[in-house]
Amino acid sequence: MLKRRLVVFDFDGVIVDGMAEYWWSAWHSSCSLGAVLSDFSPDSVPETFRLLRPWVHYGWEMVLLAAELPRLDMQLWMTSYEEQQRRAMARRCWHPKQLQTTLEQIRQNAIRYNCMAWLALHRPFPGVIERLQSLDNEKTDWSILTTKSEAFATKLLENLGLKPWHLDGREAGEKPEVLRRLQSHRLLYALVEDRRATLETICSISGLKVINCLLARWGYLKPSDLIGLPLTIKPIDFKVFAKPLNEWP
């Protein structure tokens, strides 16, 4: 086992704010599947889409959200997201693989024909790049664990000038599985994630409870995500994130 510590980071909502790209790609994907979004511009993120983004786990869900916007009841989706999602998918006769494939095709075409414009739709959160680069001074490695496709995450990391010790994309499997594999040969110091449900799942799994689970306050959080956090999940903000590791929660 390598002796250097490893900090594992989620990508979207922790390192990069890609809200403009999520909407742009979701708009084009849903339109290509027959959705009518003539009242919306792909270059301007609707507030409803922005507010519902914290409920999204996988990319295909954003395609459905975009398609549903003209008729969507935001409060209803916030209180019963999975049920509303299920009903919308059934009504449209869509399935997740179809939407995910369409989304990835839209992104691949964007990279192929106008890569710089696509990359410009993503922006790193303030100070995050510098903090990642400084981890080496603390004899600590860092890696990426994301539900984004590895190819897209690699392209974005290269554009940001970032070189993680390792990158695990959507193809690597569910996050708990990947963390188990990492834990078998690395000393995991912390996981920084902006999805509370993911952290709760990890904290509930025997063998993974030793991981320091940190909830990024700058990410895509639901209004209730910071309320009643279990002791095993600790919030972290930019100010604390910039400090040495031994001053983290």
Rank of each mutant, 00 (worst) to 15 (best):
V36T: 14
W77G: 04
D168H: 13
C31S: 11
Y220L: 05
H122F: 11
L188G: 09
Q105Y: 09
Q98N: 06
S204K: 10
D168S: 14
V14F: 04
L119I: 14
L145M: 06
Y113A: 10
W24T: 09
A35E: 07
M19A: 08
R170N: 03
D141W: 05
K97V: 13
L69P: 15
L99H: 09
C93I: 08
V240L: 02
D225N: 00
S134L: 02
W60C: 03
W218P: 13
G59M: 07
E47G: 15
F238C: 14
L69R: 09
H122T: 10
P244F: 04
R91T: 14
G13S: 06
E247N: 06
F11R: 00
R186L: 02
T147N: 02
Y189G: 02
D43C: 01
V63T: 15
D12I: 01
L51Q: 15
V192H: 03
H122P: 10
W55Y: 15
K97I: 12
E21R: 01
S224W: 07
G207S: 00
A110F: 00
T140F: 05
L188S: 08
E174D: 13
E61A: 04
H95G: 03
V36P: 12
G18Y: 02
A151K: 07
L245P: 07
R123V: 15
D237A: 05
Q108M: 05
L121H: 05
D194I: 09
W118F: 12
R71Q: 14
L231M: 11
T101L: 04
P126V: 11
W60A: 04
N246L: 11
D43A: 05
D43E: 10
P230V: 08
D73M: 03
P249L: 03
Q100N: 12
